[in-house]
């Protein structure tokens, strides 16, 4: 069921979106985004060898946070602003759990807006990609 502005309040949680991107998913993301940095698909790449693994694209996690918000809005609103910081690396075949909550809701110039705190969590519960979004409700 799609979320509506009247039903949310400060602290309302967004439904979790659990991802576990494997190498094939990262290859698809490389093709879709145009980011062919070998650090995200080639285990022989020097930086990957140094780390002991390839790593998930930071921008994949950013886009996944976008999917979290998109799924929650179910096209009854639009994203005005979305941001994140890359604080920790994530590795293939490990959980990247996208989640968030409503930080604030308000009306301004006849628009219904909400600010969200969003983040990804790894298997240890560490927030590797904290971020924020502002959405405007249209439906």
């Amino acid at each position: 069921m799609a979320i509506i502005w009247n039903e949310i309040e400060e602290g309302t949680a967004l439904p979790r979106l659990e991802k576990r991107p494997g190498v094939t998913q990262l290859v698809k993301y490389a093709a879709g985004s145009g980011d062919f940095n070998p650090l995200h698909h080639d285990y022989r790449f020097p930086q990957a060898k140094q780390l002991g693994s390839i790593i998930v694209h930071g921008r994949f996690k950013y886009a996944a946070l976008g999917e979290l918000v998109s799924n929650w809005l179910s096209h009854r609103g639009r994203i005005r602003k979305i941001s994140c910081q890359f604080r920790g690396m994530d590795f293939p075949d490990q959980p990247v759990v996208c989640t968030g909550k409503v930080k604030r809701k308000w009306e301004e110039n006849g628009e219904r807006l909400a600010q969200l705190t969003i983040w990804t969590e790894n298997a240890e519960g560490k927030q590797t990609t904290p971020g924020e979004a502002v959405v405007v409700f249209t439906g």
Partner: peptide, 21 residues
Amino acid sequence: PPTYLGTPVFIPGSSSDTFST
């Protein structure tokens, strides 16, 4: 989709082979 702002036109020699930018 959120965070997707289009795909840069790729021209060999004028685009990054790694990042497509």
